[in-house]
Design a protein around this nucleic acid. Structure first.
Lengths: 174, 174
DNA sequence: ACCAGACATTCCAACATTGACAGGTCAGTC
DNA sequence: GACTGACCTGTCAATGTTGGAATGTCTGGT
């Protein structure tokens, strides 16, 4: 039930259309919670039905702008202050590492090197964003900046780990 | 389509029953790819139908042991050597950080401190596992060891980030 | 006046995942 | 001899997620 709350959170900042929200997902949010367009529009309809958001205006090209309601704000707040903290994550890229031993040593290290390279590239991309965005003191923007920094540190750690893992594989695999 | 490959990978090491595989998921694999029991049994049935695995023996209590077939090995290999590398991941815990600004500063920092604490605990758990497991030179075990190290480094990075983020929130949030 | 490309929404089939329920067997211990 | 806890499998409904197709509108540039 995270997507609905992600949408509520975005709308808590300011009203937006499905298309606007989609753009936000493609840029900043994609890093921690990817979502497709079809899912976003569907969820917006449900949230509207449930009274957590409402239509606050319409525009050209069939545009419909949604705003969060008081009920929506309450729901968002409840979600954010829930006691449980879900550290779980899924990574297909790491899952594959588990089975690298079924390949030859060369194939295995090639995979890890690719892993390192991709993380290095992502690191560069994120750092470029950090250094080029104009940081106002806006609270919502600060939160985005924290996540961005998480991505930067995470990518760096992943890259270093992949280099280390390549060495280990070279040393320990027959 | 990662679960089916995870099962193939585990069976590539040695034959196992659904129950055995479930245990492997609960312990090592849970870190990178959680799966429920219902999903595992269902997927095993499909893999068996598709000829990627086969029943290699039965035991007490209705136990059925599956082994990977040549077709299964080929499929696993193909998956592992696919060109695309999917770095995407989902984290509900990080998603919440995006919306911390809607809470008071105290509530926000409390969340991040909890985040730091949980990662510290996970770090301790993983280090304990690393230091207590008897590491033979077994290839499959080495792969598990690499992942474990990833978890350790990732937890450490996450904890440090959360401490840093707590400071930032304290400084920059009104 | 035309066109490309961004804007904007809707619908759908297929697949993945969760959470719960339901059933039964065997080994060791009190 | 009864009980507990680990072993072992199966199924279902509901929900979440993906990927694609279809449709139409407005804006800016040539």
């Amino acid at each position: 039930m995270s997507l609905r709350h992600a949408l509520l959170g975005l709308l808590a900042e300011k009203p937006a259309s499905g298309y606007d929200l989609l753009k936000r997902f493609e840029t900043s949010l994609a890093m921690v919670w990817p979502a497709q367009q079809s899912q976003i529009y569907g969820e917006l309809a449900k949230l509207n039905e449930g009274g957590l958001i409402e239509i606050t205006g319409t525009g050209a090209r069939n545009r419909r702008e949604y705003g969060i309601t008081d009920a929506g704000r309450a729901e968002l707040r409840e979600w954010l202050t829930e006691p449980g903290l879900d550290l779980a994550f899924r990574s297909a890229a790491l899952l594959r590492v588990f089975f690298l031993w079924t390949l030859t040593r060369e194939e295995g290290t090639a995979y890890l090197e690719r892993f390192a390279r991709e993380n290095r590239e992502r690191l560069a991309t994120l750092e470029a964003i950090r250094d080029n965005v104009e940081w106002t003191g806006d609270p919502a923007q600060i939160a985005g900046w924290l996540i961005l920094e998480y991505g930067i540190r995470g990518s760096r750690t992943a890259e270093e780990w992949a280099r280390w893992a390549t060495e280990q594989l070279t040393e320990h695999l027959p």
